[in-house]
Computed example of a mutant assay.
Amino acid sequence: MSLKIKFFAIAAGMAALQCGSAAFAQANVGAGKTLFNQTATPACAVCHTLKDAGAAGEIGPNLDELKPDASRVEKAIRNGIGQMPAYTKLSDEQVELLSQYVARVTGAK
């Protein structure tokens, strides 16, 4: 196999991996949105504004403006903050998905 063919084979494999991770990331965004709008009890959307989720809550902070990173969101979910309760019934995976979702769709750094 020539060097040129090997290069294209490697490049094609990397492209496939990137497409797969993009699909995986999109699935996580969908799961995070469902958690935000429906699964968490009470639903995050009741209190928070988050454009991607179609949420216009006015009790808690506007997450689009706050742009919290995932660790900040996770801490608030696990421990509660202010009027927000701790979400102790969510699994570790759900907390991570929800935290990553909020951080990703708000453009947190």
Rank of each mutant, 00 (worst) to 15 (best):
K4C: 02
K4R: 10
I5L: 09
F8W: 08
A9T: 11
A9Y: 08
A9R: 14
A11R: 04
A11E: 05
A11N: 09
A12W: 11
A12N: 11
G13S: 15
G13I: 12
A16W: 03
L17T: 13
S21Q: 10
Q26P: 00
Q26T: 00
A27C: 04
N28V: 07
V29Y: 00
V29M: 05
G30F: 06
G30Y: 01
G30V: 09
G32K: 04
T34V: 10
Q38I: 11
Q38N: 06
T39H: 04
T39W: 08
A43T: 10
C44G: 05
C44D: 12
A45V: 09
V46G: 00
V46D: 01
H48S: 01
H48K: 03
D52K: 02
E58N: 09
L66E: 08
K67W: 14
P68G: 05
P68K: 01
S71R: 03
S71Y: 01
R72A: 07
R72E: 03
V73C: 13
V73A: 06
E74T: 04
K75V: 05
A76F: 02
A76Y: 04
A76M: 05
A76K: 06
P85C: 08
Y87V: 13
T88K: 13
K89F: 12
K89S: 12
K89A: 06
E93A: 14
L98Y: 11
S99Q: 15
Q100V: 14
Q100D: 13
V102M: 10
V102W: 09
V102R: 04
A103K: 01
A103Y: 13
R104V: 04
T106Y: 12
A108E: 09
